[in-house]
Design a protein around this nucleic acid. Structure first.
Lengths: 344, 344
DNA sequence: TGTTAGCACTCAATAGTTGTGAGTGCTAAT
DNA sequence: ATTAGCACTCACAACTATTGAGTGCTAACA
């Protein structure tokens, strides 16, 4: 048997055991529980090596070993076998979704619930972000003499309201004209760089109206670039209390404090670069507050365009194989539901 | 000295002490700290009486006394002296508000922050609810052939979007006609009982359009009656960890779980009947989850109409006098700011 | 040379023990 | 009526074994 392979086998066993028990795992237990065919003493030697290589850590001299973030990384990339969803779970999920067809927000919120229920971790789900490519229609509504309401509607059915203050009084004819121009710009998909290329459209506007339009465009840009419109659904925050690594009140507090700032959560979930499933383990996280957590995220799509993110956060000792399996399945379902909801 | 008055004096001292220390207070400490002019033994006798009367409780035989909810009630109603805001705090508040003029949501969210910062309790703040009396304008926007977007705008500047699915295709002329009728109904403030009295308005519509209108009205009613549009801003959830009464993880968990359901929070804050300041102490709460908490709420108004609620939640051993003082001042400021924001 | 049994040592966690102090209620004296 | 004095209670903190799962090292073995 290749020496390398044996080390990996031992590492794999340690990780599995630690994920299940949260107790530092020792050589004797390991030999007893997993039929590795070698004695505790040999395992001890291998463990010492693995520790030197940075895969294991020892909380104190006379305790077992605990996997490091590096170990989880190798586990996630090479060792683990993604769990397949079983029939019962599959049906549970379908049932949970049943009552929520038709409204995107409800579907996303329900997804978050399902995630936390089935994983016992804390779940997050983001509604789609508005982006320039997805704008379908812009409507300007007069509010008061010097205030207009801009309603931006995306192809995905996301609606955003922005109140715009203006210097002068405007009448509704002007608004309609400007609305038309805006929507024409949208049709030509050049709303963000309109200045260079669309003089022909602007011809219908007089000087005053052009100025107003010029004021409105940056507001649209702003609206698209900020996260205010994204809703964050979250469930199972207090699940972290179930994990011994958070029985320290200070840590629990830090974790829960995160949840007060939507922005941080959005940033956290948006940091995964790939489409598909993204795993960030402990110290790999950019944010200090989650350096002892792992984050598994997945995206949902419509026609190949990424709309939003869902994810699960928990201790680094996370059941990666189970969560990844679940997320795989769930994004499939979600994509399907989103498609049906938004196209119908 | 009247015997009644002496008892009250002792009770007052016990409550003040317990609010400050969270420790059961005994006769000796009481005599030493507060110059009551009587000996510990006398105090003991009085305390025994007060316990019998239901104002005090004894965690165990050989410990001091703890005030009951009934005691806090009498404290809040008769004994306490509402604390006046001091200059430093006042200026802090003004500074905190400074950067947030102009947007109602920001002002409310900032209020929540101020509340939790200055009290060290958990704060809540609700944005205004939509109600029929406050609708200013309704706009129907075509989304897809069989979908329309209804934008409801209130006098307070609150905007709500509702997507409406309809059976048939509709053209934009129909939408404009119906919009006009709706807004005419609003002007006559009879949108919710339109059937009886407004036949003259309906004359402009043909049969098909009337059916559509009849479908839309209940959706408006629904939208007005449900809480979906209310935003709940909350800060300082983890402040409860500072209180010894929540060092029991189970209790902390129960408390934090509350915060996942917006509906519960809205219900909680809306339960106060009076305008002005409302105090609910421990077991007076209707909801089990907050039976060990006290809730102090206040409302903010515009032109005499209550728009929303702000409040603070914490252990029954709350610094009522300080919080009430702060809320008094804060609602004043808030009303002023709201007025400026919404009228300008 | 890799593997393993044996041994002395480490250290967190648990349970038992004891002392301390703030509290009480009761009684008798003021 | 008030209070000093006294015996009693009980949570809490500090201390002291005891236990047990773990280690590293060494020497013997295949």
């Amino acid at each position: 048997m290749d020496i390398r392979e044996r080390k990996m086998k031992i590492l794999h066993a340690i990780i599995k055991d630690y994920i299940a028990t949260a107790e530092p795992v020792g050589s004797r237990t390991l030999a007893k529980k997993y039929n590795l065919g070698i004695s505790p003493a040999t395992i001890r030697n291998e463990m010492a090596d693995l520790e030197e290589m940075g895969f294991l850590e020892q909380p104190h001299t006379s305790s077992g070993r605990v996997p490091s973030d590096k170990a989880y990384r190798i586990y996630v990339d090479q060792l683990m076998k993604v769990e397949k969803i079983n029939k019962v779970i599959e049906e549970t999920i379908n049932k949970e979704y049943e009552s929520h067809v038709g409204e995107l927000d409800k579907i996303i919120s329900q997804t978050s619930k399902i995630l936390s229920n089935l994983t016992n971790y804390t779940s997050l789900a983001l509604t789609p972000q508005l982006c320039s490519a997805s704008i379908k229609h812009i409507q300007l509504v007069p509010l008061q003499e010097d205030k207009i309401l801009m309603v931006i509607i995306s192809k995905e059915g996301v609606v955003r309201n922005v109140v715009i203050n203006i210097d002068k009084k405007i009448n509704s004819d002007t608004l309609i004209k400007i609305s038309n121009v805006l929507n024409e710009l949208i049709r030509r998909s050049s709303i963000l760089q309109f200045e260079q290329e669309v003089f022909d459209i602007l011809n219908v506007l007089n000087e005053e109206e052009r100025i107003l339009l010029r004021d409105i465009i940056p507001i649209i840009k702003d609206t698209l670039s900020n996260n205010d419109g994204i809703k964050v659904y979250t469930n199972g925050i207090t699940n972290i209390f179930n994990f011994p690594e958070f029985k320290d009140l200070e840590k629990a507090k830090e974790f829960i404090d995160l949840w007060e700032q939507k922005n941080i959560l959005v940033q956290l979930l948006s940091s995964g670069t790939d489409d598909g499933i993204n795993i960030t383990i402990g110290s790999e996280n950019k944010m200090d507050e989650v350096r002892e957590c792992s984050l598994i995220t997945a995206t949902y799509q419509l026609n190949g365009r990424t709309l939003g993110t869902i994810g699960v956060i928990g201790p680094t000792r996370m059941e990666y194989s189970r969560v990844v399996g679940l997320l795989n399945h769930l994004t499939g379902q979600l994509n399907e539901l989103v498609k049906r909801t938004l196209i119908d």
